[in-house]
């Protein structure tokens, strides 16, 4: 029973990891950018949720109504102001600039909020759970998992059935020709980053409700998201969800064996998958 419980809890945790991964996957798909500051942006969203929910006295999930647009605006500004200037054939500038951003964000949060762990208080729903025989499924993890699946489904639909998704795919294929269609690359990239950070905003607030957080945990969240992307296969949004769930299950099974092995077990699952299938389980795009 403990093992089944571990798999179920791991699956629910995997939804959150898929949300970490979705933003990374989207911007890599559209502009081949790997954002090292992604994890720190997740943590930033959690802190924004904290500040807004305490300042306005609202539930953290309600605060999402503000955190999401703020993060989206920040994403657009970041892309147009800084990241667009790093894109080109050379992978060094985007890597090093986002690495610099990561250090700035992390230490900026440290200055403002200190290193003390914080948590978003979601109230009674945090402890309420649904009993299925011996399994206890928390309403909150269930809700977050459902939201993650819904967000990923919406991203998939946006990518393949809307004008914006068409613009993303066209720009991803051939930036210069997309420009000839009247698509301003800088703007399209800005929109992609805005959307990615809107998803990141939800991920950050969910993270903050689930566990305590401090400014230093961004790197770890980046790695979980990245592992989910690679396990699922590049360029496949549903694959990203599968990757997140596999990572989540790997971690919770590891924790079941030895509480100290949770994160390590996840990394080992990831390394095993790149050893066996370096292009991930469901690849769709060349890296």
């Amino acid at each position: 029973m403990d093992w089944i419980n571990a798999i179920v809890q791991g699956t629910l945790l995997g939804g959150l990891y898929a949300l970490f991964a979705a933003g990374l996957s989207l911007i890599f798909g559209v502009m081949r950018l790997v954002n090292i500051a992604h994890g720190d942006l997740i943590v930033l969203a959690a802190y924004l949720g904290l500040t807004l929910s305490t300042a306005l006295g609202i539930h953290p999930l309600l605060a999402l109504g503000l955190v999401v647009p703020i993060m989206a605006l920040l994403g657009y500004a970041l892309q147009r102001g800084i990241l667009n200037h790093t894109l080109g054939d050379d992978i060094l500038p985007p890597l090093l600039v986002t690495f610099g951003l990561s250090v700035i964000l992390q230490n900026g949060l440290l200055e403002i909020y200190s290193a003390d762990p914080q948590k978003l208080q979601a109230g009674a729903i945090e402890t309420a759970s649904l009993r299925l025989g011996e399994l206890a499924l928390g309403y909150l993890p269930l809700l977050m998992f459902a939201a993650s699946v819904a967000i990923i489904a919406a991203l998939q639909w946006m990518f393949y059935h809307t004008a914006l998704g068409r613009a993303f795919r066209a720009t991803s294929d051939r930036q210069d020709v997309a420009q000839l269609m009247g698509l301003n690359r800088a703007h399209v990239f800005g929109l992609a980053m805005a959307l990615a950070l809107a998803v990141t905003a939800v991920a950050g607030v969910f993270l903050g409700i689930r566990t305590s957080f401090d400014p230093s945990i961004g790197g770890g969240r980046l790695i979980f998201g990245f592992e989910a992307v690679i396990i699922g296969g590049l360029g496949n949004i549903w694959g990203t969800l599968a990757g997140g769930v596999i990572l989540g299950i790997g971690q919770s099974l590891g924790a079941q064996i030895n509480p100290g092995w949770q994160v390590l077990a996840g990394h080992l699952v990831f390394l095993a998958i790149i050893a066996i299938r370096p292009r991930g389980l469901f690849p769709r795009m060349d890296g």
């Binding site: 068409r166 795919r169 066209a170 991803s172 294929d173 051939r174 210069d176 020709v177 997309a178 420009q179 000839l180 269609m181 009247g182 698509l183 301003n184 690359r185």
Partner: peptide
């Protein structure tokens, strides 16, 4: 001007080598 600004003013190019968008269908 940038290519997208030129395009918006009404100049369209059929590029050498066609350069269609591979991820898009014919209609897209």
């Amino acid at each position: 001007l940038r290519a997208d600004q030129v395009a918006a003013r009404g100049i369209a190019l059929v590029p050498e080598g066609r350069l269609l968008f591979a991820s898009l269908s014919v209609e897209e």
